[in-house]
Design a protein around this nucleic acid. Sequence first.
DNA 1: CTGAAAGCGCTTACAG
DNA 2: CTGAAAGCGCTTACAG
Lengths: 346, 346
Amino acid sequence: MTIQDVAVLSGLSICTVSRALRNLPNVSEKAQRQVAEAASKLGFKASAAASRLAGGSTGSVAIIAPTATTWFFSQAVEAAEEVFGDSGYDTMLISLRNKKTVKQQVFGRLESLAQRVDGVLLLNVDLDPSEVEALEASGLAVASVGLRNVPWDNVGIDDEHAAWQATSHLLELGHRDLAVLTNTEPVLSDVAPAQPAGRGQQATTARFRGFSRALDDHHLTVHPDLVVACAPGIDDGRRAMTELIARGAKPTAVFAHCDEAAFGALMALREHGFSVPKNMSVIGIDDHPMSWFLGLSTVAQPVADQGAFAANLLCERLLNTDTPNQPATHLLDTKLIERKTTRHRR
Amino acid sequence: MTIQDVAVLSGLSICTVSRALRNLPNVSEKAQRQVAEAASKLGFKASAAASRLAGGSTGSVAIIAPTATTWFFSQAVEAAEEVFGDSGYDTMLISLRNKKTVKQQVFGRLESLAQRVDGVLLLNVDLDPSEVEALEASGLAVASVGLRNVPWDNVGIDDEHAAWQATSHLLELGHRDLAVLTNTEPVLSDVAPAQPAGRGQQATTARFRGFSRALDDHHLTVHPDLVVACAPGIDDGRRAMTELIARGAKPTAVFAHCDEAAFGALMALREHGFSVPKNMSVIGIDDHPMSWFLGLSTVAQPVADQGAFAANLLCERLLNTDTPNQPATHLLDTKLIERKTTRHRR
DNA sequence: CTGAAAGCGCTTACAG
DNA sequence: CTGAAAGCGCTTACAG
């Protein structure tokens, strides 16, 4: 069954049918009605392939994420996929598998991608300037989660504030010697890097800044011995905490830049005879589902909401490709959740 | 860039190029080489829309999963996506979001799906007979993970054996009073259900059978008071274990049908003053990444491998759509992993 | 407001 | 083994 069948049934040309079906202007109400009736009677749905080939839209969008396996990304992906599905778009999944080569491949062939999807949703994908440019040139509609200073709509959290909330909580409990498990490539000064930083670094910087600002609010300063770099993930959290202990550092509380790092820290502390929260308080950021289970105090960020919000923004863009957009960043609220790993300093 | 560009560069007609690109017969080696060279030089990739419209393939496949958010699925999805990507297919993600309505929508419009993808990879999607039939009729290539008795290639684990391994481990440690957290809709007899069961039930049945067979090997029988239904997930594991304790049941060990249920059980036990493994042993199935962290003994199943294997099977089908297939089920090995939650009975 | 015509980039018979 | 031609089902200028 083709558009021709609808044309015959409605007594109009396929051209008018095509217009009516897409709610384009210049179709009389009567024609509109006839077409709608005929189409629904036939259960007609335009061939995505033909539409696409003739210059219309592909009806699909791509989600690009550094990996699809972590809690954060799977959560955001599912939420976005739901929004896209409800808006009639198919969603194509592209996982960069944490590999630079894969990323280069994808961004090196953006025209090819643009041929297969109408838009792209970027989830925490570190972009260098040339990639931003390529994306702009591709003609693809773009929206993102967790980026900064990008020329399209973006959704995220206020990383600095989240870190500030976590740290302030520790300080309010009377802790004064705070250790921090900061993301790799720790930033010990506020001096702007020479090169514009990718998002990962920006979040790292922001979270560290939040930590340091909270200390500052209490007239305290960051002690270098209590700062340790730590990749996201349990393994490295454990390693980092172990290193901190080996240094002979004596904090009474530790702020981990993400929950998984905090899990690892918890493990290391247990292995070295510390009792949490009795003689060590621990807090993270995320509210990973396991955090509830482990009683980890943390600052929650709405992951699914970020994905859904950004997806909606992208859909809006897709509907109004002609009207120019004033790109904006939307920051969603984070929230302190006190559980069992933080306690008053004795 | 179109096939025309490749034709010009290689000095051949678009028709020959088209054939060469798809590795069809009747292309000289020389032509084959020239085309391959020109195509890679240009980074050419055929327009999915045009291919599709002209009667060829869409160049994409769909992964359908009950949800995309759990560890199991995100792991399998990423592994499959990698295989598809390497084989030149785009992967479309369809999450059923654990909703029947979404499932009905997807399976009710299979022709529409068939218009947009060449094949489908099913991940633990419970299918009723009419859906299996619809899939067969759609002309889509199909492969699956975790199904049974389906007319296409399938990859999974031997659920009965996995449960047997876990239970036998407990028995070898001297435990005699074993509780089981079996998946919902517990099966207390081996009588075959009147209706052909969906996959979920089949795995449930198989795991319960493995549990019961292990007991049988030791001349023990299942005690109804020690059987409790438990949905996958931490929350329900906790609820189920709490219920077991409330019953006054006195097992010395518990086998949970999956690791997340075991996590919940661990939590409930802790809340009720039990000490694991001192006065209670716990084991699960999966080897969830958190299991290592929590020291949970378990039976590991290779999740990414299952996804990748099934994806490869699907790609093979896609390459040989004309040759009939002898559908087979491939069972991957599971492995007992002893950690800290299981110990000799005192 | 409506329709005839060209064309999107491929694949598929059909000749050669 | 190779190529010219038709056609897949739509959309997009362009007339009317």
